[in-house]
Amino acid sequence: MSREAREFKFLATPEKGEVSALLVRPESASHLLVLGHGASTNMWHATMQSIADRLAEAGVASLRYNFPYSENGKGRDSQAVCTATVRAAVAAAREAAPDLPLLAGGHSFGGRMTSTAASESPLEGVRGLVFFSFPLHQPGKPETKRADHLASVAVPMLFLSGTRDELADLDLLKPVCKKLGKLATLHAVDTADHGYKVLKRSRASDEDVFVEMARVVREWASKLN
C-alpha cells in the first residue's frame, strides 16, 4: 500500500516552542492515530517506527511527535506542558488530515499523557484512545493510582498490553478495565513485555506482534461511532 510521509513542526506551547512531527498516511486510510512516545525515547524510537509502519500497512494513518524535552534534549517537562503538547498535536493532526476520523494515544508515557489530557477535558475530534503498554505502575511496585483519572475519560479506550509487561500487571489491569465498563477494551499481547519483545518459543501465535496490534487497532476503530 502506497503511503505519504511528511515531516513538519507545530507549536507545542508558547514557552517551549515548536516540536517535530511525522505524518504517515497510507492510501485509503480509515483513521488517523496521534502517537506520543515513551518517557525516555522520542518519535524516532524503533518501537514508534514499528507501530507506525504496521499501522500504515493496516490502513491506519499516524502522526507521531516529540514532547518538548525530547525535542530539545532536556529534562522531563511538567505534566501541564506534556498535556498541552498532546492537545497541540491533536490540533495539528486535524489540520493535516481534516478528512480522517481521529484517534489519540501512544506508547507508555505518551499514552498516559494523552489519557491525562483527555480526562481534564475532551480532545477535540478524538473518537477513541489507544494505549500501547499503558504504564499502570512502576516496575516491582504494583498499584493502580495511575489509572484513577481514566474514570473521567469520555471516549472508548483500547489497551494493548503484553502479558509480561512489568509496568502493567494484568491481574491489576483487568479489574481497572472492567471498572471502566463498555468504554474499555483490553487486548492481551501474548508473551510481550513493555517494549513488545516476545518469547517466540512459547508464543501461541506466529503473527508479528506489531502486525497483531495494528490489526486490532483497525478492527476496534472500525466499530467506533
Rank of each mutant, 00 (worst) to 15 (best):
T85M: 01
T163W: 02
F67M: 01
A58K: 03
E124R: 06
E4C: 12
V155K: 03
K223I: 09
S115F: 01
N66M: 00
P156S: 13
S70I: 02
K141M: 15
E207V: 12
S108N: 00
G125S: 07
A29N: 00
H37I: 14
V24I: 08
P135R: 02
T85H: 02
E4K: 11
L55F: 11
P175Q: 00
A29R: 01
G38W: 00
R203Y: 14
S20Y: 15
K179R: 13
V189Q: 03
T185V: 05
S152Y: 06
A154H: 07
R64Q: 05
T47G: 09
S222D: 14
M43N: 01
K174P: 11
D208W: 08
S108I: 01
A96K: 08
S108F: 00
V155W: 15
A21L: 07
V24N: 06
S78H: 14
E15H: 14
G110W: 15
V81G: 06
F10S: 01
T191E: 03
A29D: 00
S28I: 13
V19A: 04
F8L: 08
Y196F: 12
L160E: 06
S205K: 08
M113H: 04
V34W: 11
L167G: 04
A151P: 02
S205I: 10
M1C: 05
D169T: 15
V130T: 05
A96S: 09
L158K: 04
E7K: 14
M157C: 11
E95T: 09
P122D: 03
P142W: 14
L150D: 00
L23F: 02
E207P: 01
A58F: 13
R201N: 04
G75I: 12
R54K: 05
F132N: 00
D99W: 13
E219H: 04
S152K: 06
D77V: 01
D165W: 09
A91D: 15
K74S: 08
F132W: 09
R6D: 10
T114K: 02
M1W: 08
H45S: 14
R127G: 08
M213V: 11
V24R: 14
Y69Q: 04
A80Q: 12
H31M: 12
V86H: 08
K178M: 06
M113S: 04
A97C: 12
E120A: 15
R64Y: 05
V211E: 11
V176D: 01
V130L: 10
G106H: 03
P26T: 03
P98G: 08
L172R: 10
P142Y: 08
S70Y: 01
P122F: 02
D206A: 13
E212N: 09
D169L: 04
L180H: 02
F132E: 00
H45Y: 06
V216D: 05
L199I: 05
K223Q: 11
R146T: 14
V189W: 02
G75F: 06
E7L: 11
A5Q: 06
E18L: 04
N42V: 10
P139N: 11
F131T: 13
F210N: 05
P156I: 03
S222I: 07
K145N: 07
E27V: 12
K141E: 15
E15K: 15
R3S: 06
F8P: 07
P142R: 12
L55T: 09
G75C: 06
D99S: 07
N42Q: 14
H107W: 09
E18G: 05
A168R: 00
S222G: 03
D208R: 10
A104I: 05
M157V: 07
H37C: 07
V176L: 10
S2G: 08
A204R: 14
